[in-house]
C-alpha cells in the first residue's frame, strides 16, 4: 500500500516536470525558428531574439520546481527519514501536480507562438522591444497561476 502511494506521488512529479518541460521545449522551439529567420537578415538582433526566445522556457522550470517539491514531500530526496504515504495521500500529491503539468504544457506552446510573433515585430520595429516582451508575459500569467495553485495544493496536503 505504501509503495503505491509513493508511486503516485512520483507519477505526479514526473508529469509536472515532463509535460511542463515538453511544453517549454516546443514553445522555445517555435520562438527559435522565428528568431533564426530574423537573424538571417540581421544577426545583430541576437540579444533581443534570445531574450524573447527564453520567455517560454520558464514553464519547464516551474514544472521542475513542483516535481522537486513533490518528491521532497515524500522524502525521496536528501536521504531523510522514511515518510509513509498512503494511497490517498499519494493520489492527492498526484492531483496537486496536475495544474502545472497541464497549464505549463499548453501555456508554454501558446507563449512560444506569441514570442515568435513578437520576434517578427522587433525585426521591423526594434524600438518597441518593451511591448514585445510584455505580450508573451501576458500568456505566462496562467502558467504562474498554475504554479501557484500547485504550490498551495502541495502545501496543503498533510502527511
Amino acid at each position: 500500500m505504501d509503495l503505491l502511494g509513493i508511486a503516485l506521488a512520483i507519477l505526479g512529479a514526473a508529469m509536472a516536470a515532463g509535460w511542463a518541460g515538453a511544453g517549454s521545449a516546443i514553445g522555445v522551439g517555435i520562438a527559435g525558428e522565428s528568431g533564426a529567420g530574423v537573424m538571417t537578415e540581421d544577426p545583430g538582433k541576437f540579444g533581443l531574439v534570445l531574450l524573447l526566445q527564453a520567455l517560454p522556457g520558464t514553464q519547464g522550470i516551474y514544472g521542475l520546481l513542483i516535481a522537486f517539491f513533490a518528491i521532497l514531500k515524500v522524502g525521496l530526496l536528501g536521504g531523510g527519514a522514511e515518510i509513509s504515504v498512503n494511497v490517498w495521500q499519494g493520489l492527492a500529491i498526484f492531483f496537486a501536480c496536475l495544474p502545472i503539468a497541464v497549464g505549463g504544457y499548453f501555456s508554454a506552446i501558446a507563449q512560444g507562438k506569441t514570442s515568435a510573433a513578437c520576434i517578427q515585430m522587433i525585426a521591423k520595429r526594434p524600438e518597441e522591444t518593451g511591448k514585445a516582451v510584455i505580450l508573451p508575459a501576458m500568456v505566462e500569467t496562467y502558467a504562474v497561476l498554475s504554479l501557484l495553485m500547485s504550490i498551495i495544493l502541495l502545501n496543503g496536503i498533510s502527511l
Partner: peptide, 16 residues
C-alpha cells in the same frame, strides 16, 4: 499573486 509565486520560485530554484 504572481509576487508570491515568482518569489517562491526563485528561492526554490536556489534550494534545489
Amino acid at each position: 499573486s504572481r509576487l508570491l509565486a515568482l518569489g517562491l520560485a526563485t528561492s526554490a530554484v536556489g534550494v534545489i
